[in-house]
Simulated assay, not measured.
Amino acid sequence: MTKIIAVLNHKGGGGKTTTTINLAAALQLKKKRVLLIDMDGQANLTESCGLSIEEEQTVYGAMKGEYPLPLVELKNGLTIVPSCLDLSAAESELINEPGRELILKGMITKLLDSRKFDYILIDCPPSLGLLTLNALTAADFLIIPVQAQFLAMRGMAKITNVVEIVRERLNPGLSIGGIVITQFDKRKTLNKSVSELINDSFCDKVFKTVIRDNVALAEAPIKGLNIFEYNKNSNGAKDYMDLALEVLKLK
């Protein structure tokens, strides 16, 4: 059965796209069929996969009902639904659509009638607007990457509140799969303090795996590669494989 995972943090720079692409690559190395959906109007995931942000068909056209979700198969075996800069306009364009929070869920359901994936990972925009609501309504689990910085902690309560509302009104099957601490440097006292605070506050919702601060993770998307293609021996590759092993246990 397909597991759908939304990756969200409404503060930019927290490792959301990095987590989406590298978790997907790790799951694929574990012989899972993985689909990526780029729901962010910045299209960082699309570019990180080596695609142009001017693909002919994107999630934007699909959300507007022009065609089904367009699938682009990458050389590394992953499949992606690309985004484009126009997607940001979808928030206002779809505001009067009936059932507007359910558009993505409906398209994924149709897609799964003909194509089977073990995992679908949705890279959400760094906001809590309509596109994010679509992702949360379609998802089984939410993964929240949190940078090991104090300010990154401040938005957590807002996200958990939104999850409760979505669960109550739109998607009772949604649960928080886990919080993953990113850009962690054990030599920094602040990083350690924030990590302890997150663990104390969210207890069993925090993944044991911590994504260490690693320059290879920043360099890989510039080449249009995931961390395993770029440097499979890096700390980044080890950490995301460990995270994937935890994600495989989500039920």
Rank of each mutant, 00 (worst) to 15 (best):
I144Y: 08
I144W: 11
P145C: 05
V146E: 05
V146K: 02
V146H: 00
Q147A: 07
A148Y: 02
A148N: 07
F150A: 13
F150Q: 14
F150G: 07
A152V: 09
A152C: 07
M153S: 06
M153N: 07
G155N: 02
G155L: 00
A157E: 08
K158R: 12
K158P: 06
K158N: 13
K158M: 13
K158Y: 14
I159G: 04
I159N: 09
I159F: 03
T160E: 11
T160P: 07
N161L: 10
V162S: 06
V163S: 11
V163C: 10
E164L: 15
I165W: 10
I165A: 13
I165P: 06
R167C: 00
L170G: 02
L170N: 15
P172C: 10
G173E: 11
G173L: 13
G173V: 14
L174C: 06
L174V: 00
S175P: 04
I176Y: 02
I176P: 00
I176V: 12
G178D: 08
G178K: 01
I179D: 09
I181M: 04
I181V: 05
T182R: 02
Q183G: 08
F184G: 01
D185H: 00
D185N: 09
D185Y: 01
D185E: 11
K186Y: 15
R187G: 03
T189L: 14
T189P: 11
T189E: 15
L190N: 06
L190S: 06
L190K: 02
S193W: 12
S193E: 12
V194I: 01
S195Y: 09
S195K: 03
E196A: 14
E196I: 13
L197Y: 15
S201T: 07
F202K: 12
F202E: 05
D204Y: 05
K205S: 06
V206S: 06
F207Y: 05
F207H: 11
F207I: 10
F207M: 07
K208T: 08
K208F: 11
K208N: 08
T209S: 09
T209W: 08
V210I: 14
V210K: 08
V210Y: 02
D213W: 03
D213H: 01
N214A: 01
V215G: 10
A216K: 14
L217Y: 04
L217Q: 04
A218R: 00
A218D: 04
E219P: 09
I222W: 10
K223G: 06
K223F: 14
N226K: 08
I227F: 03
F228G: 10
Y230V: 02
N231T: 06
N231H: 00
K232N: 08
K232H: 15
K232D: 12
